[in-house]
């Protein structure tokens, strides 16, 4: 049991503390000299208007993940209950294929799709005589375009969990409800979904927690955070500050904000689950 805690301590828990420590310094990651500046990295981040924009963009990513990787997979899973389990297996397998390929590799084809001149989307729009947007170069379109790639890549994963959650609902409940005359949307709205709620909360929070991580590589491949920071988010900026601009202290302070956001989300999940349990009693 002990051995597993050695790498966990060295590469997961120790970095947590070291990050906090680094956040009090001004340091470029390579220079042996670093200057202690207290909370200056934090105050500097909070003073910048870009920080608020970045937070809002992080929420935007989360919102898009809720549509594409929470609501959509649950909808598809509900539909899947209507077909035989043999047939369902085919959809499960095929929808999971994008989830087993490398994000970076899967994103490359989208780079071509989004190409303003010579890309697939604008070739289609051009054939229909429609206006052709600049996609990744358009500050208002770039973020949803990047999010779409992540949602495509990870849909199969979330669909699988949604379907498993729905199937875990005891058959007796459904039969009892049918005997009582519930059917179609009534059955789904008043019997299936309430029983599915605990799995749904799990799926909801993991979708939120993973959303920024899942757009990480698509951002790196498609836009590197641009144009003019329009596709940046709290998680990507940690990496950008640290490894592109070599501002280790700033990156570490951003990490602390990120940890705080994650902790709040996880706390909220447990509160929700607790409420749910009391309600069931």
């Amino acid at each position: 049991m002990v051995p597993v805690f050695i790498p966990l301590a060295l590469f997961v828990f120790y970095p947590l503390f070291r990050t906090v420590y680094i956040s009090f310094f001004e340091w470029n990651l390579v220079n042996p000299k670093r200057e202690f500046i207290g909370f200056e990295n934090y105050t500097e981040i909070l003073r910048q208007p870009e920080f608020i924009t970045m937070l809002l963009q992080s929420l935007y990513y989360m919102g898009l993940a809720l549509i594409g990787n929470f609501l959509l997979p649950i909808g598809l899973a509900l539909l899947t209950l209507q077909v035989s389990s043999r047939e369902a297996e085919i959809y499960q397998t095929l929808l999971f294929i994008p989830a087993v390929i490398a994000v970076s590799i899967g994103t490359l084809i989208w780079l071509w799709f989004y190409l303003p001149a010579g890309g697939l989307f604008n070739a289609i729009l051009g054939a229909w005589q429609l206006p052709r947007p600049a996609w990744l170069n358009d500050p208002s379109l770039a973020l949803p375009a990047v999010a779409l790639v992540a949602n495509w890549k990870f849909l199969g994963f979330h669909y699988l969990i949604a379907l498993a959650g729905l199937r875990a609902i005891p058959k007796e409940f459904l039969e009892a409800a049918r005997v009582d005359g519930a059917s179609g949307w009534n059955l789904i709205a008043f019997v299936v979904l309430p029983l599915f709620a605990p799995s749904a909360i799990f799926l909801l929070v993991s979708t939120l927690l993973q959303s920024l991580e899942q757009v990480f590589v698509p951002i790196e491949v498609l836009t590197v955070g641009g144009p003019a920071g329009a596709t940046d988010n709290l998680m990507y900026s940690v990496y950008n500050e640290g490894f592109k601009f070599f501002r280790a202290g700033r990156a570490a302070a951003l990490s602390v904000f990120l940890i705080a956001a994650f902790a709040a989300l996880i706390y909220w999940q447990f509160r929700l689950l607790e409420k749910r349990v009391t309600y069931e009693r």
Partner: peptide, 29 residues
Amino acid sequence: FVGQHLLFALIVLSMMIPFVITYIPNYLT
């Protein structure tokens, strides 16, 4: 064993730490 719950809580906690925050410290290590 002693401390079982605490250690298991650490296991669960380790799953929730965003990978990106470990990059700089791990790079230094």
